[in-house]
Design a protein around this nucleic acid. Sequence first.
RNA 1: GGACGUUUAGCUCAGUUGGUUAGAGCGUUCGAUUCACAUUCGAAAGGUCGCAGGUUCGAAUCCUGCAACGUCCACCA
Length: 905
Amino acid sequence: MDYSELPKAYDASAVEKDIFKAWEEAGYFDPDKLPERNQNGEPYCIVLPPPNRTGTLHMGHAKMLAVEDLLIRFYRMQGRKAYWIPGTDHAAISTQVKVEQILIKQGMKDPRRELGREKFLEEVKKFAQQSRDTIVSQCKAMGASMDWNREKYTLDEDRNKAVNHMFKMMYEDGLIERGFRVVNWDPQFKTTLSDDEVLHKETQAELVTFKYDKDFPIAISTTRAETKFGDTAVAVHPDDVRYKQYIGQTLAANYCGKQISVKVIADKEVDPEFGTGALGVTPAHSMIDSDIANRHELPMVQVIGQDARMTVEAGPDFEGLTTLEARAKAISMLEEAGCLIKKEAVPQNLMIAERGGATVEQLPMRQWFVRVNKPFKLRQNSLGKWKQGDETTLKELMRHAVESGQTRILPESFHKIYFHWIDNLRDWCISRQIWFGHQIPVWYRRSSQAARPTSEDCEVSVGVEPEGDGWERDPDTLDTWFSSGMWTFSTLGWPDTASVDEQGNLIKTGELAMYHPTNVLETGYDIIFFWVARMILMSAYALGEVPFHDSYLHGLVRDDQGRKMSKSLDNILDPLDLIPKYGTDAVRLSLVMGTSPGLDQKLSEEKIKDFRNFTNKLWNISRFVLQSTSQTTVEEADRQRAGGKTLSDDWILSRFYHVQNKVTALIKDYQLSQAGELLRDFTWSDLADWYLEISKIEKNKDAVLGHILPRLLKLWHPFMPFVTEYIWKVGGLGSGQLMVSEWPSEESQASEAEKRFETIKTLVTDLRRLRSEQGIEPVKFVEFAVVADHAGSQIIEKNMEVVKSLCRAEKIILADKIDDGWAAAVSGSMTIGLNLAGAVDVEAEKMKLQKEMEDLIPYIESTEKKLSNSEFTAKAPEKVVKGMQDKLEEAKHKLAALEQRLKIL
RNA sequence: GGACGUUUAGCUCAGUUGGUUAGAGCGUUCGAUUCACAUUCGAAAGGUCGCAGGUUCGAAUCCUGCAACGUCCACCA
């Protein structure tokens, strides 16, 4: 091939599509179509966190894809049977809300009512399908090496089967139950929400202190006067002498025109120091109060309805008012009646819905819950701690999975956060009053004349649709995270691929046996609770094993000022804009380099541009190697390499093996950024700036370059798959595709060459400095001579051509070969003889020398002191002491040389 | 209210059991250029490692306190 035809600049957009197509056609994204080497290898599996079918992918997704593809490609090249499970998430409420908004924009007033369940769901499905298509093409544009023929969907038939099975299991184990409890209610979307879907926003509120009516003996405080119609108790601390006399009494009161009956109860939870020390208990509209009410068996009066307006229970004056209207009205009525004691402004956390931002009301409703504290009997041995039939709780399972190290969360600082969340976890409300999602697999048949079916007066069938007439299915759907929580095994054929043997061991078959537990779950830290924790819960419960060994949590991608990317700020960087502009490889590098797990990253277009420059650099390095060396196959190169090596050859090979092994270790340890930076330093500094320059002087580098280039491309491939695969192809560097080539793994050879080559680097750098600082023309270097210690002198003499060329000097004379007419000066371990006949600005050089000496003296003094300290030499590791001694010697040498040079000047 | 994270060069960030004179990229300044690459090359300047104590022969690294910024959790009604 004629490499001189290769373009000077790498044009990513011109080649990426074809490369991706070639990958797809080769079929290697499918683990079952990988080469034999991989087929026999150990499985390696990552599930893609399924992107929500709510629109398009953003930078966070791009980062996720970049990291996961890096890992998958790395392990695939390492010979593992790599399986990256692709899929998308129906994202229940998010998607439904999105479609509703679109339909409203198109002119509908209330799409759900106007269309009805079936037609509305058709609209949602249409949208979800479009969104899915966009997501798939975006994943492909990112170079993500997963096989979409194996696509899974959280709402497809297989997943529905798994969900229903899980629901039934948990129901039978008493872990799922229907209950009338206080739940989070989103009045805007008219559905319940889990605790995690509720945000707290600090606002100013008015805390009012009052008595229910004039004759009521106890004053209480509240920020929500409108809920007080629902009070059924006043709670005080049992030891509070002020109220002791009332404890146990039931008092009647007239609160703003409504007759209420409150019992005075004693409860240790009440803080006697706060406010009046008495707490009005509203069981229907506060989870905390509801807990108190359960303890004391108090009745519940619901005064706020699902429309966030007051109910008939609030009395005729208030019924139908919004909560805010009712609050204002109640306060003014209290004021008029002379019951108001105090008003003060306090900060208060308002509960708002994560989606939509509506104020969340707490209401009592009949809903389905997963009970996290309920002891149950395990169906199989679990997590190496429990045997079949042992009692435990879901919380215990979640805790032990991480505590025992079976799942590792990275960075480890998230362990604490995880445990804290578990400790505070309440039962998980899983039923939603939306249409898009897995419909709850429960059927009721009326067994009484009740107007509406409830579990009390109905026959209930769970899991599969029962035979017979009169059955009606629960209209609610499941929280989207219920199905997401099963993702690692619902995608691997569960429940058909799992059974339990007589000893209580889980027997896995098929893909579940092959790939579960998966190796790593890589996702943003923002969904650790929503998803990571629930996956652990589901897997530990249903399989008795963890869903993944490692959980690598990446940070959020922010703009260059550290702000969240958002439409309103107009600071969104869109992968789809950037990929054609800078190339996918550049975008991927910018999302991996300079980042740490768990920490947010700032991203600017500038950074992506820098990595575009680097892809081009790698392109040109390769082009140069291909053009300037004779075509050698990898095998030929290896053979040739055996003989005729120079110092620079030994040096670059030594460096390369070091980098190769270090990069391998770093990737295995998830230190992707560091691995990339190490590779970049080697590629740009060592290889391009030194070795390739030397190769222009010393010929016959074909074998070494022919050895390094293909291996370097391999090391880079997981980071920048496109450009490396392209070079591999146009360079004819190997028979198959780079993506399934073998990861290089030569043992690191400890070599003296690195140290000896430093001698040359130091000298060259020094001479370059003189030229740069003092503007001495290259030709003048003729006048410079070099004295090195014996070894250094020999190194330089042997590599004279290289040194001369790199310094652009015509001639360099070693000092031991010059006469007294030359003066000697010193730099580092070698002496640079300077001809005083005008080549150097003496004053400038003197100042430079003096400054260098000044910097050196304190170091030498302190190091000497340290080394003479017996405690130090006794306690410090030998390696450190030896290193310091060497450095000290070097510094002393240098100082002496500087002194001498100064004297001469 | 509880917890977590961050704070290192003008900017973005490395710095993994405490150990040799704290590193890189970008930016800045100066210089180079027919030679793979101006998407380039060379050189230089630039840091009391947030502040104050402590432990240690030795601290950016460990401990304590403080500050700034950020995040998560929690309905003191």
